[in-house]
Amino acid sequence: MVTTPPIRIGVTGTHSTGKTLLLRRIEMELFALDIAVARTGQLGRRAALVPLPKMQHHTADSTRWVIATGIADEVAAAARPVGDTPVRVVLADRACWDAIGYFRAAQEWSGCTTHRTEREALHRLAAANPPYDLLLTTVLDPHLPVRRKHDYDPRYRQLVDHHTHALLREENLPHLRVTSDPASQQRAVDRAVQLCRAVTPV
């Protein structure tokens, strides 16, 4: 029996730029259309429980864990039905390329460099994941305040934004930029919903 793989929508971008909220909005829209959807996430929190370094302290090992675990989460989400209904859409909160953007930023922030073979191995691991049907990339707005509970290093946050967008350009990965403007966010939600409605039986 041949089954159609689910649509995969990923999001990438620096921290506290609305990635999770964006996917939640898409998830709610799809639920309203009775489209079976699964969402992955919380990779940073789970990495800290291992424990592995995160943010500006990311290493090749922690990056490898994030990429591999994220890919495994996507595979599991696609295989796990919602009730009796096969999953038709997987929303990846932190697409696999996200981890490399964070890693590159950590390297620049700390002034460290990892051996070329290690960097290439991480790249191959991310590239092994099938392309996303839609890749959304948030854009940092440095003027927006961050919640007080988040003690982020502002320089590292900006470096992640820079390296994430640079990486997507280098790899020629089609993506939709999503700014903090509500109209931009709504366009991203609409684009995702239209894609799912066009190729998913409702």
Rank of each mutant, 00 (worst) to 15 (best):
T114N: 11
P86H: 02
R148K: 14
E120R: 15
R169K: 13
A128K: 02
N129R: 14
H15E: 13
V199P: 01
D181I: 09
A121W: 01
I67H: 04
W109D: 12
I67K: 06
M55D: 15
R169C: 12
A105Q: 04
G41T: 01
V87Q: 06
Q56Y: 08
T117K: 13
P51R: 08
L176M: 13
D84M: 13
V75H: 11
L176P: 01
I9T: 07
W109V: 08
G10F: 04
L91I: 00
A166W: 10
T40H: 09
T200M: 07
Q42Y: 11
R147A: 15
V146T: 14
D133A: 01
A188S: 01
T200Q: 03
I7E: 01
A47M: 03
R24L: 09
R157Y: 04
A106G: 07
A106S: 13
E118N: 09
T200V: 15
A128F: 10
T200E: 09
L91K: 03
G10D: 03
V2K: 06
H58P: 02
N172S: 14
A99D: 02
P142V: 05
N129S: 14
H58N: 12
A198S: 14
D151F: 10
A76H: 13
H165I: 08
T12W: 00
V89S: 07
M28D: 15
Y156P: 10
T137K: 09
R104C: 08
N129I: 08
H143I: 05
R157H: 02
A127L: 15
H150F: 15
G10V: 06
D98L: 02
R155L: 15
S180K: 06
G13Y: 03
T59Q: 11
R119W: 11
D153H: 11
K54C: 10
L49V: 09
E120L: 15
A188G: 06
E120N: 15
D190A: 03
P130M: 00
V89E: 00
L135Y: 01
V193P: 07
E120W: 13
E29W: 02
P145K: 02
V66L: 15
P6L: 04
D190V: 05
L135C: 05
P5S: 08
